[in-house]
């Protein structure tokens, strides 16, 4: 690994200014993604700004009936096992529990999981691709089996975070430390498409820090679930994933929110789809027909067309599971 200085601020303010003062600095939480990037020479930061000494960032605060606030430094293992999260925010607990391995979840944080860089072969390899400031997306005409089917141009990554997909379905807000203040941004607005900037996955500017995620408590009677489809049973990234929060009433969906992973360069949701869930009758045939009508605008690359039936089927399955 290349050499770096390890800076240990005690407050967000210090962390923010260290990020601004030091050229080539990287925010460092659990480090599971950062170390991979450094070891593989994808990035070579001269300064790591460790966030783990900052008090309060690893806390979970639940306000019954209203919301839960999860500090950015909370370990995934603690989210997966948290009694309130497993009960009322099930989709997030399931997503957190699906990430990598026990060893990873013990160290990795939710903030790091949200802000991790893509897993695209070319981005992670020694290709000076568009995401690293080059001119090309090597995947577009290369090995693109795992790449996106919507929102790609000009870079066809998928966003790798499981927790972010769950948070999007839960309509979470991200609290960002910026210029000595905290501001709230919706999960949808936090992530950006390559057409906005192909070298970044989110809106964070240098000096800005993801401080926590704030999740409104789903309506009473809602159920939620995360289905992560992997090629291997476990310890793998999602090929496609679906997160859903659904409230059923009298054989119909009263309210629903769906988010998708593995289909787009950011955690994906479709407004029209979420709206049309309301009033959807939950008979299997009906749900099947509904699912078939999604992703009609997808434009797959040469090797990822299979993701269209896959995502439709996963949508169908999660809706059936949540409404039986």
């Amino acid at each position: 690994m290349n050499s770096f200085k390890y800076l240990q601020p005690k407050s967000l303010q210090d962390a923010g200014s260290l990020m601004q003062q030091n050229k080539n600095a990287l925010l460092f939480a659990g480090g599971t993604d950062a170390l991979g990037l450094i070891k593989n020479n994808i990035i070579s930061p001269e300064n790591l700004v460790n966030l783990k000494q900052i008090k309060g960032l690893n806390e979970i605060k639940y306000t019954p009936g209203k919301e839960i606030k999860i500090g950015a430094l909370v370990n995934l293992v603690d989210i997966a096992a948290h009694p309130v999260i497993t009960e009322k925010f099930t989709v997030l607990a399931e997503a957190a529990n699906s990430i990598a391995s026990p060893q990873f979840r013990n160290v990795a944080t939710i903030g790091g999981n949200i802000c991790q860089r893509p897993r695209c072969f070319y981005f992670r390899g020694d290709f000076h691709c568009i995401r690293k400031g080059g001119d090309l997306c090597y995947a577009a005409a290369g090995e693109n089996k795992y790449h996106c089917i919507v929102g790609g141009d000009p870079c066809y990554i998928i966003h790798p975070s499981d927790s972010a997909v769950a948070l999007l379905a839960l309509d979470a807000k991200f609290s960002i430390y910026s210029d000595k203040k905290l501001k709230l941004v919706s999960a949808w607005d936090f992530f950006i498409l390559p057409s906005v900037d192909p070298t970044r996955e989110n809106i964070l500017k240098p000096g800005e820090i993801l401080e926590s995620v704030v999740i409104p408590e789903p309506d009473k009677g809602s159920k939620s679930r995360y289905i992560k489809f992997m090629e291997r049973e476990v310890f793998d990234f999602a090929v496609v994933s679906v997160a859903a929060v659904v409230k059923k009433s009298e054989g119909k969906i009263a309210k629903g929110s769906i988010a998708f992973g593995g289909v787009a360069p950011k955690p994906w949701h479709i407004d029209a789809l979420n709206k049309s869930l309301t009033g959807l009758s939950t008979e299997e045939e009906n749900i099947t027909e509904f699912s078939k009508k999604t992703f009609t605008d997808a434009s797959p690359l040469e090797k990822n067309g299979y993701k269209i039936p896959l995502v439709r089927n996963l949508l169908k399955r999660i809706l059936i599971d949540l409404t039986v």
């Binding site: 020694d126 290709f127 001119d135 090309l136 997306c137 090597y138 577009a140 000009p154």
Partner: peptide
Amino acid sequence: MKDKSKSRVFSRRNFVKGIGTS
């Protein structure tokens, strides 16, 4: 397959350029 922003799609000639710098 849809035609993706042509200038950025891969060709063997510009690969040489891309990888050389890296």
